Computed example of a mutant assay.
Amino acid sequence: MMPIPITMATVALLGLGARPTAAQEWESRPTREREDVHLRNDCRLAVQVLTHGQPATKREWALDTIDQCDESGPPVLARMWRQVAADSASVGHMVYRSVRLRDQRVYDVVFDIARDPSVPALKRAAALYLLGRWAHPGFSLPFRQFFAPDYEPAEWRGGVSGVTFSFIDHDTQHPGAKPLPETIKADVLRLARGIAANDPNYRLRATADLFVKTIPK
């Protein structure tokens, strides 16, 4: 049998054929949930409670646990974001439950909520707040002031005077099994600029305008 010549092109093609896809790469990454049996068992129960509602006595525990589940938690949080009511308390709880887990499966849903004009403005503003926390940990967009009952659009003239800001010193976040995109800050800024320029809701426009002007570049 004649030997088959190995050329650089052959090597390159072999290398390309052996390279795992992005999905294969993140699915094979070690995660805390895979490596910690106790956490894995907790996460299995938390997913069950938040998906099926049983046992009901475990709901608060499950809510406190789900953001530690870097593999199974994101699909649950994504579904909860789709379903959450558009009131201040409910969206505030969702931000709190989601912010520590940096996973693209939640990010994609939250990003879609922020840009969807059919979603109530307060829920979109909360989604934008969460995107800001992920894009620049510690950045805390004070969006609720624009949704106060007595807020008038004339109060916002594109400046930042009179706006109360806070920056979170220890904004602890950890990666999910599918990390956030490297372009997150640029993508979120582009989204916020579009909302600030074109959204029909004046409260959300003010929120997005403040976002663009104040997020650290």
Rank of each mutant, 00 (worst) to 15 (best):
residue 173 Q to M: 15
residue 130 L to R: 14
residue 173 Q to D: 11
residue 103 D to Q: 11
residue 60 E to N: 10
residue 128 L to W: 05
residue 8 M to D: 12
residue 179 P to W: 02
residue 55 P to N: 12
residue 205 R to N: 10
residue 93 H to Y: 08
residue 187 D to Y: 12
residue 65 T to Q: 13
residue 122 L to I: 15
residue 37 V to T: 09
residue 10 T to C: 15
residue 104 Q to R: 14
residue 88 S to E: 13
residue 67 D to K: 11
residue 111 F to C: 02
residue 124 R to T: 08
residue 90 S to R: 14
residue 22 A to C: 04
residue 130 L to V: 02
residue 80 M to V: 10
residue 103 D to E: 13
residue 175 P to F: 00
residue 33 E to T: 11
residue 107 Y to S: 05
residue 81 W to Q: 00
residue 37 V to G: 05
residue 151 Y to T: 06
residue 163 V to Q: 01
residue 92 G to Q: 05
residue 119 V to I: 12
residue 90 S to N: 12
residue 139 F to K: 01
residue 18 A to M: 12
residue 93 H to T: 02
residue 42 D to G: 05
residue 113 I to E: 02
residue 101 L to G: 13
residue 126 A to H: 13
residue 69 C to Q: 11
residue 136 H to E: 09
residue 28 S to G: 08
residue 62 A to G: 11
residue 165 F to Y: 01
residue 74 P to H: 05
residue 49 V to Y: 09
residue 126 A to R: 00
residue 126 A to Q: 06
residue 126 A to K: 03
residue 110 V to P: 01
residue 43 C to V: 00
residue 15 G to D: 03
residue 76 V to H: 09
residue 42 D to R: 01
residue 34 R to D: 14
residue 120 P to K: 12
residue 168 I to A: 07
residue 204 L to R: 01
residue 213 K to R: 15
residue 177 A to W: 04
residue 92 G to C: 02
residue 84 V to D: 03
residue 24 Q to R: 12
residue 158 G to N: 06
residue 102 R to E: 10
residue 117 P to H: 14
residue 70 D to V: 10
residue 167 F to S: 00
residue 181 P to E: 06
residue 48 Q to C: 13
residue 79 R to M: 14
residue 85 A to K: 14
residue 144 R to L: 02
residue 188 V to N: 05
residue 17 G to N: 01
residue 55 P to I: 02
residue 12 A to L: 15
residue 170 H to I: 03
residue 107 Y to R: 09
residue 159 G to A: 00
residue 137 P to V: 05
residue 150 D to F: 07
residue 106 V to N: 06
residue 21 T to Y: 08
residue 182 E to D: 13
residue 95 V to C: 04
residue 157 R to M: 03
residue 58 K to T: 01
residue 72 S to E: 06
residue 133 R to M: 10
residue 77 L to W: 04
residue 131 L to W: 07
residue 192 A to N: 03
residue 175 P to T: 02
residue 186 A to N: 00
residue 180 L to M: 00
residue 72 S to C: 04
residue 19 R to N: 05
residue 158 G to L: 06
residue 72 S to M: 09
residue 48 Q to N: 15
residue 198 N to G: 15
residue 11 V to Y: 14
residue 214 T to P: 09
residue 50 L to F: 07
residue 211 F to L: 08
residue 6 I to K: 07
residue 56 A to Y: 06
residue 100 R to Q: 15
residue 12 A to T: 09
residue 40 R to T: 12
residue 155 E to I: 03
residue 217 K to V: 13
residue 16 L to F: 03
residue 189 L to W: 07
residue 7 T to W: 10
residue 65 T to M: 08
residue 213 K to N: 14
residue 16 L to A: 04
residue 141 L to Y: 07
residue 125 A to M: 04
residue 170 H to T: 07
residue 36 D to L: 04
residue 92 G to F: 03
residue 18 A to K: 11
residue 4 I to C: 13
residue 87 D to P: 05
residue 113 I to P: 08
residue 89 A to C: 15
residue 7 T to Q: 04
residue 75 P to S: 09
residue 205 R to E: 11
residue 138 G to C: 10
residue 142 P to S: 04
residue 88 S to C: 03
residue 50 L to T: 02
residue 141 L to I: 03
residue 134 W to N: 12
residue 200 P to C: 05
residue 80 M to E: 02
residue 72 S to N: 11
residue 99 V to P: 02
residue 183 T to H: 07
residue 133 R to T: 10
residue 179 P to M: 13
residue 127 A to V: 00
residue 116 D to I: 03
